[in-house]
């Protein structure tokens, strides 16, 4: 058993102590986790983004176009000043505008057109028929500009039942995955750390 395993085990138990109540041991582990993770991400950002994607192209390869993202990055840092913090809105607007521009067609492709194609199934078996009925009734449930009454309401109600069946099965499936994570942690504590189990 090495020292890193012992530290990991103690921190695991410290986090689990929250199950009883908030306490100084949990607070310590929480602050260590936060501090270490922020430090880690700062280093990752410098080594994986700032150096290879800004410093090297700009100062080593001499690609002057990289001055633009450098200036935008500096503009973002101006948030910490009171006088010039408004300048940070320029890179923020750019991030949101470009991000939305990229995300919306991708969303349209993955969440609408591909899903529509996947639902255009031949009505040749019960499974396909159920899928199409479920999709259409769920679509009806998400109608906002019409009251859910009469046949429309019945269809919408069927839609919410289909949704709940989906959520129930997802819940059960995911809980099983979480239990396997718990088992992994218990194996770490009892096996890797204490050596009680193999």
């Amino acid at each position: 058993m090495d020292i890193s395993t012992t530290i990991a085990a103690i921190l695991t138990l410290a986090i689990y102590s929250f199950l009883y109540r908030d306490n100084p041991v949990y607070k310590t582990a929480e602050h260590i986790l936060l501090g270490v993770s922020v430090g880690y991400f700062v280093v990752i950002t410098i080594s994986n983004t700032i150096i290879p994607k800004l410093i090297i192209p700009l100062f080593v390869d001499g690609e002057l176009i990289y001055i633009i993202p450098a200036l935008l990055g500096i503009a973002m840092l101006l948030r910490v000043t009171k006088q010039f913090s408004h300048i940070s809105r320029i890179p923020l607007a750019l991030i949101i505008g470009v991000g939305a521009g990229i995300a919306i067609p991708a969303y349209m492709q993955a969440h609408l057109i591909a899903q529509m194609k996947a639902t255009m199934l031949p009505l040749s078996n019960i499974s396909n028929i159920v899928i199409i009925i479920a999709v259409l009734s769920v679509l009806v449930y998400f109608f906002f500009s019409r009251k859910h009454e009469g046949a429309f309401g019945v269809t919408a109600k069927a839609g919410i039942y289909f949704l709940m069946i989906f959520f129930g099965s997802t819940f059960g499936y995911t809980v099983m995955a979480r239990i396997s994570l718990l088992i992994g942690r218990i194996q770490f504590l009892l096996g890797d750390w204490l050596g009680i189990i193999r």
């Binding site: 492709q109 609408l112 057109i113 591909a114 529509m116 194609k117 639902t119 255009m120 199934l121 031949p122 009505l123 040749s124 396909n128 199409i132 999709v135 259409l136 679509l139 009806v140 998400f142 109608f143």
Partner: peptide
């Protein structure tokens, strides 16, 4: 838009059942 999507799904499913696949292929990416 939901009405259009629902209509397209119904039309696609009916055509697929009839063995006509060109409509669903329009949605291929």
């Amino acid at each position: 838009l939901k009405i259009i999507v629902g209509g397209a799904i119904i039309l696609g499913a009916v055509l697929e059942t009839a063995g006509i696949g060109f409509f669903s292929k329009l949605f291929g990416i």
